[in-house]
Design a protein around this nucleic acid. Structure first.
Lengths: 249, 249
DNA sequence: CCAAAAGTGTTCGCGGTACACCCATGC
DNA sequence: GCATGGGTGTACCGCGAACACTTTTGG
């Protein structure tokens, strides 16, 4: 554990523990970082966005995008900034997940991390372009590489949160393009919830909520019958929310 | 904003911002605290446990129990320790709630707080004794005094969490004594969910889950027919959990 | 014309909901 | 004996679950 790194950037953020017996402030000050679990939906499974670390510790190991919180920035802001800086991803659904602070989770010393999770539309050309870099990659949840720090645990918790929340909040749509087929939507739920759903019952249920509305577009580029495309009516959802409506699948 | 306090204790934790232009480490280090929203159920409403601050800022103002996280302690540990130190409360249900880190939330400088919420049995003699101190008090949620920092917001979020969670996790029992009548249990749900429930339907539903079981005890000290007392069968619940069972009211 | 997926209704059973009266006890 | 809450059953309805065939399209 080297006491100092040469030129740490905001992501890798090396620092030295305080010299023993010398205190700058009355109270110990852990370092505080944010880490983002970006989840995206591929054809057949959920994937998570990882970046390869450039410095010690865990040099060359895959890790969640994240880094140190700046002095004057809010935690959400920090998460969005790190996401932009490290993966070029912007404008995604982002929500605070949990704060991890076990004393030994970072070999360099005390680092508390506020974890966030984000839902990205893998189909978005910006996301595709953004994650084209060498040291950025999407990994299926059951094929994760070895991960730095306690990042595997953070990912597990993010997926649990998604699984719990997708059933009573309309966040699944954040994983789909703006126009989607009901089959795509159903597959999303099947993948996230890890169980098969009945096609007719699913459609009946979804359409009965009145929040997923037909468009006049259809699928293209498939070599079978083209599916009708639908969109999520966010305006309507927000109106209903205020009246105490509860989304539920 | 005085640059130093004489002898801050772990709760009030005064500290000074770093002298401008001088950096001890490569990255800014916010102070990190924990705060606990302890909720308890009184006859007719939910109450929250507050302590009166002894020092600036917000001297004499009511606030959540909490304080600085020590160098080598886990966040949960810190929360339990602060609870014990400031209110003498131990052995309660405790769960991390959310981390609040808006840069200006503490007038002294950057303080990030990891908020927890706890559920206490107000009937517990230890809790009663523990909160007997002068500067500790239970307040109904709709009669809160002015609060320090952003603690009002933290309480709001804790109550929302409880409201959301009580329906699909058996945490309501944490607010009741080990033996309780079904009427008590029903009133708990009515208070937390803020709506009336039908007595017969509630009993049918609760008993059908098989997790609330009859004891041979009855209420005492009431001047009408004594109610039968029940208990929550935690063992059975944990067994069912492993089999994918889902608690729901 | 064949492969592939889209799209569509009905039946059944359980669980949620609405609803009112008698009972036990203490004072 | 009266006030106070404890305790109990039934009928209806709506929703979730099970289930299979026809249609459309591209190649």
């Amino acid at each position: 554990m080297p006491a100092a790194e040469k030129k740490p950037d905001s992501r890798d953020g090396a620092w030295a523990p305080p010299p023993p017996g010398r205190h700058v402030y009355e109270y110990p000050r852990p370092a505080v970082t944010v880490d983002c679990v970006v989840l995206g939906l591929d054809a057949d499974d959920l994937k998570v966005l990882l970046v390869q670390r450039g410095v010690e510790p865990f040099k060359h190991t895959w890790a969640l995008p994240g880094g140190f919180v700046k002095d004057d920035e809010d935690l959400d802001e920090a998460a969005r900034r790190e996401l932009r800086e490290e993966t070029n991803i912007e404008d995604v659904y982002l929500e605070q997940l949990y704060t991890f602070g076990t004393p030994k989770r970072d070999p360099r010393g005390r680092v508390i991390t506020v974890a966030y999770y984000a839902l990205a539309k893998l189909s978005d050309y910006r996301v595709k372009a953004a994650t084209d870099a060498e040291n950025v990659g999407w990994y299926a949840l059951d094929q994760l590489p070895p991960l730095a720090f306690d990042h595997a645990e953070i990912i597990t918790r993010a997926v649990e949160r998604l699984r719990g929340k997708v059933r009573y909040a309309p966040i699944g749509f954040e994983l789909l393009p703006p126009r989607f087929s009901l089959t795509q939507l159903q597959r999303l739920y099947e993948i996230v919830l890890e169980r098969e759903l009945d096609k007719r019952n699913f459609r009946k249920k979804i359409l009965s909520l009145g929040l997923v509305v037909e468009t006049d577009e259809v699928e293209t580029g498939v070599r079978h019958r083209a599916a009708r495309l639908y969109r999520f009516d966010k305006k309507k959802y927000e109106r209903l929310l205020k009246q105490g409506f509860e989304f539920a699948i």
